[in-house]
């Protein structure tokens, strides 16, 4: 009787071990799968974010460059400049510094251009001063030379009054 019980128990044990044999593979596969999914998901999220942020930055950067290069071709005075700025950034306005004869346009802290004009003009009826005779457009900030452009920034900037 004892022997019969032992043989039954051993047979059950054999099937149990066979089951374990199949289950352990599943466990390792699941562990590996979890590791793979966690690592790749982190990479996907991080790299997608970099890709998107840079693409968004390009979007603003290219429009700022377009203003700078467009100004060199078509702008004569600060009113022209304001129109060009509004074409690319309807919600952002540049500001004139009458004392420095410059106009600063800042789409963001990384996207700044400073235009230098040759003379100041005054509307005799309204007394509003504006800048004329575009001389140059400083793109130091766009080139990454932030310090150079900060030095050029006028501290007596006046809001443009011609619009």
């Amino acid at each position: 009787m004892n022997l019969k019980n032992i043989s039954i128990a051993l047979t059950v044990l054999v099937f149990g071990v066979i089951a374990m044999l199949f289950m352990q593979k599943g466990n390792y596969v699941n562990q590996a799968k979890e590791h793979y999914e966690a690592t790749t998901a982190k990479s996907f999220k991080g790299n997608s974010m970099v890709l998107e942020l840079v693409n968004n930055a390009i979007d603003m950067n290219k429009q700022t460059w377009a203003i700078a290069c467009g100004a060199l071709q078509t702008v004569k005075n600060s009113q022209d400049m304001a129109r060009l700025e509004a074409k690319f950034f309807p919600a952002t306005k540049g500001s004139n510094s009458i004392a420095n004869k410059t106009r600063r346009f800042e789409a963001s802290s990384a996207n700044v251009i400073v235009s230098t004009f040759g003379k100041v003009e005054e509307d005799k009826k309204t007394g509003v001063k504006s800048l004329a005779d575009l001389q140059s457009v400083d793109v130091s900030v766009l080139l990454g030379n932030v310090a150079a452009a900060s030095a050029a920034e006028g501290d007596d900037a006046e809001e443009e009054g011609e619009e």
Binding site: A32, K33, Y36, L51, I58, K62, A66
Partner: peptide, 24 residues
Amino acid sequence: DYSALVQYNLANTLKIEKPGEYHF
């Protein structure tokens, strides 16, 4: 003619693919 620069958009050409399934 720098119109291509003004319209430049990398989002149309570069994409991060989603990870595929793990295979044992």
